[in-house]
């Protein structure tokens, strides 16, 4: 494309400044980008010397014990982490939940996905927001924001919260099961594919 000035950063997708919570590293990226302005002719394309790989190692995140065995596991789980979600939202003053529903509706959405995963006609199930992608983005945001309060150790690595959600939680497994069932029922690709990252 030949843009006039580009600093190519081989960082995890979603982290264009490289490292969240690392002001020094972010300043290094900015310094290298702004240095391109000093060139007398272009186009200029340079590589940042550091490569960061998203290895998708799940975060270590202790979860509350089951409370109500009569509920679907994902619904019980979502209710159990509500306190952590609320603390996360209060600490940051903002939430990414709200595309299709509010946080109170997350358990209801998971119950709807359970019906779909169990074979109900996905078009007939009352899914909050009526948008499979928006619903799953809200569920992911609810869980990942809660996980930032519950996780041990340093800030999660790239795609670590994603790996935790899809590999370690009842809700993540349920989203994948519902997606597979919607696909099996013959829905258009756009309805089910983007309910989760494409590699999952």
């Amino acid at each position: 494309m030949r843009p006039p000035r580009a600093l190519h950063c081989e960082f995890p997708i979603g982290r264009p400044l490289g490292k969240p919570g690392d002001a020094a590293f972010q300043h290094d990226v900015l310094r290298r980008a702004f240095a391109l302005l000093e060139r007398e002719s272009g186009p200029v394309l340079e590589d940042h010397p550091e490569v960061i790989v998203a290895d998708e190692q799940p975060i270590s995140c202790p979860m509350p014990a089951r409370f109500d065995p009569d509920l679907p596991p994902a619904v019980d789980e979502a209710r159990g982490i509500r306190g952590a979600y609320d603390r996360s939202r209060a600490r940051r003053g903002v939430t990414n939940v709200g595309r299709a529903m509010d946080p109170d509706t997350v358990p209801e959405a998971l119950a709807a996905l359970k019906q779909i995963a169990d074979g109900a006609d996905w078009k007939s199930v009352r899914l909050p927001g009526k948008n499979t992608v928006a619903v799953t983005l809200d569920i992911r945001a609810y869980y990942e924001e809660a996980a930032l309060e519950l996780a041990d150790g340093p800030a999660p690595g790239p795609r670590a919260a994603e790996a935790w959600f899809f590999e370690k939680t009842e809700a993540g497994a349920l989203v994948l099961a519902a997606r597979a069932e919607i696909k099996r029922q013959g829905a258009q690709e756009g309805i089910w594919l983007y309910m989760a990252p494409v590699q999952r």
Binding site: P12, I13, G14, R15, P16, L17, G18, K19, P20, G21, A23, Q26, A54, R92, N96, V133, T136, L137, R140, A141, E144, E145, A147, L148, A155, P156, P158, R159, A160, A161, E162, Y194, M195, A196, P197, V198
Partner: peptide, 18 residues
């Protein structure tokens, strides 16, 4: 952003990374 195909948690941890 509507994609699930990137590390969405990074922005939550520190918006400055975006």
């Amino acid at each position: 952003h509507w994609s699930q195909n990137f590390d969405r948690s990074a922005f939550t941890i520190d918006p400055n990374v975006v």
